[in-house]
Amino acid sequence: MPETILKATNISKKYGKHNALHKVSIEIKRGMIYGLIGENGAGKSTFMRTVMGLITIDEGEIELFGETGITGLQRARRKMGQSIETPALYPDLTARENLRVQAANGGVSEREIDSLLRLMNLSHTGKKRTKNFSLGMRQRLAIACALVTNPEFLILDEPTNGLDPSGIVEMREIIQRLVTERGMTVLLSSHLLDELSQVATHYGILHDGKLIKELSQDELTNETRQYIELETSEVQTAVVVLNELGIRDYEVINGMEINIFERLDDVALINRSLVLAGVNVMRIGASRQKLEDYFLQLTEGSRHV
């Protein structure tokens, strides 16, 4: 049984009358890449800040590396690294100096600095001050700062925010390398499920301060069902053909599209039957429900509860 790194139980935080977090419980075990997903304002950053001890909680309990209480949590937090929201750097210092400051803050030696600069592809920055870095470079340096104290648990809040597509791919690779090469446990957030799905092993969906769903990568794959996407100008005739074929699990999306959720291997047969019945098939093929649609389905559902 893998060790529990973070166990948050019934965490609540209010700002005035607004529930930023409402009884959120999350358990993260060693080796997980736990993706926290939610719209802006869903409570992702607030939850991460409570774990880091940056904001106080109104209710609930946080256990880190099996430690609780003020002193215990302080001790446990020495094994953590974070980059929350915008990269927190000293703009007038170089990349190396920023790393030296964080190494001193953590009371660790500076011997990791060179390898971290190489890992984050920042070795060439020399005397360039971080205020002159691109956003991607600053994001990478912020993660290097989080790593300089050799954490076992890394918290990254929207690490791909503002990055271009190549930067996003690079960031994803870095996170995966940290897990495989350094055996880290990662909690990261995004408002894009599609993006998280390419790196996370487990997911927690936050909406309006509540954790509305938790699922593993396998469960997510099952939940986001595959289907046959059919586009035709004669939907009514197509429906008759589908019924004749014994297909019952389908959905008419609009006057032009039908999504068929069964007999996924029978695309050719369905196509032939439709053509023989004189249905003008404009497009047919296997597809997967978009993760963003799945996410919206969940959050819309919770809104109506």
Partner: peptide, 14 residues
């Protein structure tokens, strides 16, 4: 303003 205070406090410094 730079958020660098988070880097210190999140390390468990009192």
């Amino acid at each position: 303003q730079n958020g660098t205070i988070r880097n210190v406090l999140s390390l468990g410094r009192s």
